[in-house]
Design a protein around this nucleic acid. Sequence first.
DNA 1: AAGCCCTGTGTAAACGTTTTCATTTTCGAT
DNA 2: ATCGAAAATGAAAACGTTTACACAGGGCTT
Lengths: 343, 343
Amino acid sequence: MTEKIATIEDVARQAGVSIATVSRALHKPNVVSETTRERVQTAIAATGYTANVMARNLRLNRSGMILLLVPDIGNPFFSAILSGIEKGASQAGYNVLIGDTQNDPEREATYAAYLRSNQADAMILLNGRLPAPLAKAPANATPPVVIACERIPGCALPTVIIDNDEASFVATNHLIDLGHTRIAHVSGPTGNILTTDRVTGYRRALKSAGITHEPGLIYRGDFSIDSGIAAGRALLADPKTRPTAVCCASDGMAIGVIVAAKEVGLRIPHDLSVVGFDDIPHAAAYDPPITTVRQPRRRLGEQAIALLLDRLGSKTPPSHGETGPVIIPTELIVRQSTGPCPG
Amino acid sequence: MTEKIATIEDVARQAGVSIATVSRALHKPNVVSETTRERVQTAIAATGYTANVMARNLRLNRSGMILLLVPDIGNPFFSAILSGIEKGASQAGYNVLIGDTQNDPEREATYAAYLRSNQADAMILLNGRLPAPLAKAPANATPPVVIACERIPGCALPTVIIDNDEASFVATNHLIDLGHTRIAHVSGPTGNILTTDRVTGYRRALKSAGITHEPGLIYRGDFSIDSGIAAGRALLADPKTRPTAVCCASDGMAIGVIVAAKEVGLRIPHDLSVVGFDDIPHAAAYDPPITTVRQPRRRLGEQAIALLLDRLGSKTPPSHGETGPVIIPTELIVRQSTGPCPG
DNA sequence: AAGCCCTGTGTAAACGTTTTCATTTTCGAT
DNA sequence: ATCGAAAATGAAAACGTTTACACAGGGCTT
């Protein structure tokens, strides 16, 4: 009753050939005669045969699966990156298995084990941390792993990132060019490499303009809108010490700061300039449209998968004369959330 | 040189037992003696053995993979749903393979073939369309498939959705209660079932309030911010025929309408009330904060995976005395983008 | 006419598991 | 001591492929 699924053997029987011939007809068509090839084709159609990928992969010792480690799949920031990766992978005949790590080292380790257990052929890390099992023996044989989004200091694996330091430098400079000198920075969480790099760029810009750095003007957020609101309330509370411009490490936090600014009656950009980071779709539609650093997320994903496929294609374990990370250029998009210093 | 990966045979040799015993020690610990169990454990530790999942799955004729079909993974709307599904799946020991269909029926068919080829054990559809291979023989044996987000009319498969008709009815009524009578509706793309249902709810609300429906007050968008801007410009161009309230089928379009409204100098909600749909995080942080229908996306995902696991757990091909779709309740979140009718 | 290569095909091994079945060992009850 | 049941183990089949190897036949070249 329960319709048995057709195997290669059924096809062979139907076509009156051996299973080897069926396999060849499918994967090396030029080595099998025209007539049998046709017979096999009709037999396949008749039986509705679909190759059992599991068996095939076992034999070939591959999985056709690329594992993608994401800290939080619920974060829309990754959507476009995923999209770029998925596109490239599926073109090359790979599937993308997304692993949501929730920033849990244990989950990271679990997923990393997929590499060993042949459940995945390669891995892309968006989580900015090397899973424990990988960290152990990176020296002898480089695993097929690519790092994207957040560089991992001291890790020689192929990496594709944006230059966060430089991008933050440019953003801060934009405010300096507008005449601002009291410029605050709302950063990401401590320990995050993105945070470090962007703070560095911010301070570098101040320094190169001869502005003395005030530690009180740096607020640590977590990239979320809510943390931006908190930052805004903290920074703008006292009219005396209030900055005239804020440079944020995410668009969400920039929006939060603007919300807080409006609460205390400040007009943007007349009384306060705000710069974001990422250029998410909502940045352009906000009131006012937000000046921000555009991060080409899709291209970032595309580059990452390209790097990986490269690595998978050539058997040569990557030219260990490291070429350094691939840097995707960013672009400052000037909109209406920034203007001349009110002073 | 190249470190060979350890198989079950290596473990068996190391422990001085047969491979059968190793397998049993791992999967049926109670059937093997304490002492050998320990010997096997140390052997595993010594060899660094990890079971080859591919071989295991071939033998067990399963894949441990749940296929998730998404129309566009780049769309943040799905992020939270994915998150909910992923959580439930991984708790049950399944992996989630995300298939980005780009609304391409061919890609849908390709992915659906994964079911036949044992590359996936089950499937969740978020794309609102039955892949061709599935549509063929749904009658005899119901495949392990669950539909979420967009119901597929005339399809008996387990489904989890929100009541779009009712939600739209409630949203429109909210505007009617505020005294509005010229109420526009910005809908999704034609052919989309969400569009149909939400338009129905909108018209039902008008009708039940005795307001005559003007076809010119419905604008077809595509859920995006840009289409919302276009809708706003079209609807608000002529001050004579201009509506006093707009009910949108997505928060993005609501934001777009507000952008267009501000262009022509309208104040929200004083001159124009706007309602969104979904309650994305940005809805609350917009200026003004947007009144919208909250769609519990994570719960939607959780329900979908729960339904599927249910189906997978019990061998019984689902109680065909259909219980009808599972409805996740929505909630109207009233913020400051809606107010009394200016007239 | 004998030898040879070339094309096309079949046989069987291999991939790494799980599990059935048979066999050995253990051990308590007679 | 002996028997028998229960417990523990091993041998081998099976899952559905791909591919190395062998082999058959046919058309060349000598």
